[in-house]
Amino acid sequence: MTQHSVRIWDLPTRLFHWALAASVVGLVITAKVRGNAMEWHFRLGYGVLALLVFRMVWGLMGGRWSRFTSFLYSPVRVLRYLRGSAHAEDSIGHSPLGALSVFALLAVLVAQVATGLLSDDEIAFAGPLTRFVSNAVVGQATGYHKEIGQYLVLGLVGLHLIAIIFYVLVRRQRLVRPMLQGDKLLPAPATPSRDDLTSRAMALVVLALSAALAWWVSSLGAAAGF
């Protein structure tokens, strides 16, 4: 059978994926070590904030298969996929199940970062947004961030890894290599994602603006003397 090599994941999406993965690992480690490591926990948190903002924007203007519209499946489409009646495009970018995993993980990470910005350990570290809300809100955010949120993140990351292993070993689908190289071997031609110098320069601008926003948020705490 003839295989067609198609650019599915553009470079900005691939760099985002691996940068987010490394940052989440770093956040988990620094949270467990605590102490002075919490300074890095906050820095990594601001980094994840920048990455999430970037992904939200890139999901609207990125390469064909990185846009949210390419993997925003209807419940009927998901059910058909689960019943084995997959659409021809279901195996090109994110599958219906993969899409659910991506949206869930993004949502949980947004909640974790947001509550982190509102958290206070009542010892040495407080999020930059704590001065804008009541003590009750700070307490609720801190409780969620330390107790519920971190385990949701760990659980979804674990499910994500299990799903990858399942697709690689059982369904014999290569998922890791395309996220490294960008191209995917497909049984039929498909519309490739745009991944030229112009789109990469555009992504760099979006990332710079996202980083500037994260830096501004972090400066709010400094302005309050935290």
Rank of each mutant, 00 (worst) to 15 (best):
S85H: 14
L15C: 00
V28E: 02
L185F: 05
D90H: 12
G45Q: 05
I29F: 06
Y81R: 07
V168L: 15
I123D: 15
G59D: 02
A21N: 00
S218I: 01
W9Y: 07
I165E: 02
S74A: 15
L106W: 03
G45A: 07
V108N: 03
A21T: 07
S91N: 13
I8V: 14
L129Y: 06
L79C: 07
G143E: 08
V76C: 06
Y46A: 10
E89I: 10
F125C: 08
G139M: 07
A114K: 08
L109R: 05
R80E: 10
R131E: 12
R7H: 07
S210H: 01
A141T: 11
L185K: 10
K32E: 15
V76L: 14
N135G: 13
L60N: 11
L169A: 11
A222W: 13
W58F: 08
Y81I: 08
V217Q: 03
A223F: 12
K146I: 05
R7A: 05
L159N: 00
V137S: 04
A163G: 07
G35A: 13
Q173D: 11
L156E: 00
V6K: 03
T30A: 07
N36W: 05
M56W: 05
Y46L: 08
E147D: 14
N135A: 14
S70R: 10
T198K: 15
L129P: 03
A99G: 14
S193M: 11
A107P: 13
A188L: 12
E39T: 14
A203E: 00
A111V: 12
T69R: 13
D196T: 15
R55V: 01
F125G: 06
L180T: 09
T198A: 14
H87M: 10
R80N: 15
M1C: 00
R80S: 12
D90G: 07
F103Y: 14
V25Y: 04
V6Y: 05
R172A: 12
G127M: 02
S101H: 02
S66Y: 07
G143W: 15
V53P: 10
T130C: 09
S91G: 12
P128D: 10
R200W: 00
P187W: 09
P192E: 04
A19C: 12
L152G: 12
R43Y: 10
L79T: 12
L109I: 05
L49K: 02
A86K: 13
F16C: 06
A163N: 05
A223P: 12
I164Y: 01
D183G: 04
I164F: 02
I162G: 00
I164M: 04
R80G: 14
S101D: 04
S85V: 11
A21R: 00
L161P: 04
A126P: 06
P96I: 09
G139F: 12
L175H: 10
V28Y: 09
F42A: 04
L154H: 04
D196F: 13
G98A: 03
H145S: 06
S74R: 13
A50R: 01
V133C: 12
V53S: 09
V33R: 00
V48H: 03
G221A: 07
V113I: 15
A201V: 07
L27S: 11
R77S: 11
A111D: 14
S199Y: 10
S101M: 08
L105C: 02
G143D: 10
V137A: 08
R43P: 01
G63Q: 10
K146S: 07
A190I: 09
A212I: 04
